[in-house]
Amino acid sequence: MLPDFASVIPESKEDALAYLSSLKSAKIFAGGTDLLVKMRRGESYSHIVDITGIHDLKVISDHDEMINIGALSTHYEISVNQIISEKALSLAQACGWVGSPAIRNMGTIGGNLVNASPAADSLAPLLIHDADVVLESKDGTRRMRLEDFILAPYKTDIQPHEILTFITIKGLPGYREGYKRVTKRAAWAISRLSIAWAIQEKGGFYKDVKLAIGSCTPMPFRPRKVEDSLKDRAKDEKTIQVAVGEIIDEIIKVSGMRPSFVYKIPVVKALLEDILKG
């Protein structure tokens, strides 16, 4: 049973923003796969603004190395999009793992980010692509780094009258890139942990390493210090051991020693070693 609410279905971004600024207790409705579950379990809003009719927000385009992803792109659309597959493979892979086929047809990347589950599959790939989010309201547009946008699990910096309209990422063509996740069943499962990576190597040396580890820290974690330290380092067993050890230390520093780390730390360690080895 859903609580009572009234919905408005604007066809343009401008109309949507106007509604948002005039309504009290309004919630933006995109794919609905998270929101309707929460509403069934007790969340309530007097109004929802169903933005899925706004076609401008479904576009995926690129300009040089920058990729612009409309926030209403579904997980399915991203998983099969050619631009994403060529320049941000880990994101395509991650979106191909979200929920089930129906959930991927329904859920949107913008909704996924605003919901801000620490286990959301799209987060780690977006982080290694240095994603920015674009937030629009009647009063203007602001852009911020995804890392700053997500404040805590299930909590973001989005303001009541704002819509997350676009996500921009840097394409990394030519990188060895991927996404790996671990789940308790083979499909349709929440990630127990996940790793996205994009690595550039030349002649046995790391040129550029980008890693993001999901579900170990309050939000997916990018070990930037270690990434920097790997630059121009020889790709050998010792380098890898040291780097992985430092990443683990950093994770523990961020999160403290959690009970789940009995499982997660050895797994992250083994997976990172594999990933760095290629």
């Binding site: 579950v37 308790k184 499909a187 349709w188």
Partner: peptide
């Protein structure tokens, strides 16, 4: 069923 997993076709 969101936190009680039963096998899917993929399992």
């Amino acid at each position: 069923l969101d936190n009680y997993y039963m096998p899917t076709s993929m399992d």
